[in-house]
């Protein structure tokens, strides 16, 4: 077993034009910064991106939008990105907005080997258009299919050489569910240790879901809304 890669470029060598990729993170919290930089550097095009948000204008997925690398974006909330809104309203970018819980659960379903789930989110709204509705115990639910990707790109706090991952605080968010939904899952971590050093009880994502892992560098961890109180 050799899952360890030197860096993001080496880990993403086979991500080609037209691929579907999933990216963990919520806002700019817990995003795979190194992997995004690699995709920008390699300038792969026509990507379908699945991520809760689309970054901000000059960071995160916003960097890929600037270079017009995306064909389609699947997300739940894109309010922080003016370039995104411009490309969407002008029709340059295809966008599918889906409820946040539905997005998470569709990824989870893929990782659990289930083809679909029923959820009440979006019943009676335009999200329900074209979807099967089924009533259970008097309440309507939408059939939502599992969501997979050619590549899932995730960011963890610590990882080991077997690909086991531990996340930190709210930087966990979509990372564990997306890690389970990639045909190939690539994890970047702040700290990479030999297998055996992480406590098996503390691992969030078992390494079976992770195909490649590398130690990320130069984390910026930009804060979107810096809110503080006085001492």
């Amino acid at each position: 077993m050799n899952k360890v890669r030197k860096n993001a470029i080496e880990a993403t060598f086979d991500i080609k034009d037209g691929c579907t990729i999933m990216l963990g993170g919520f806002g700019l919290c817990g995003i795979p910064e190194n992997l995004i930089s690699a995709l920008v550097e390699m300038n792969v095009k026509n990507l379908t991106c699945i991520s809760n948000n689309a970054g901000v204008d000059d960071f995160g997925i916003g960097l890929m939008l600037q270079k017009k690398q995306l064909k389609k974006m699947i997300a739940s909330y894109v309010g922080e990105n003016a370039e995104f809104e411009r490309q969407l309203l002008s029709g340059e970018l295809e966008v599918e907005l889906i409820p946040q819980g539905t997005l998470a659960t569709r990824c989870m379903a893929a990782g659990y080997g289930m083809p679909a789930v029923f959820t009440p989110a979006g019943v009676g709204t335009e999200v329900a258009e074209g979807k099967e509705v089924r009533n259970f115990d008097g309440k309507d639910y939408l059939l939502e299919t599992a969501l997979k990707a050619d590549f899932a790109l995730v960011k963890a706090w610590k990882g080991d050489t077997h690909g086991n991952l531990i996340f930190k605080e709210t930087a966990r968010n979509f990372n564990p569910v997306m890690a389970m939904a990639g045909n190939i899952t690539i994890a970047e971590v702040e700290e990479l240790v030999p297998a055996g050093e992480l406590n098996p009880d503390h691992i969030h994502t078992p390494g079976i879901y992770v195909h490649r892992i590398f130690k990320g560098v130069n984390y910026e961890k930009r804060i979107e809304q810096r809110t503080v109180r006085k001492k």
Partner: peptide
Amino acid sequence: VKGMGGAMDLVA
């Protein structure tokens, strides 16, 4: 067009 985020899941 900002998106629904978690609002649709919450209200449902």
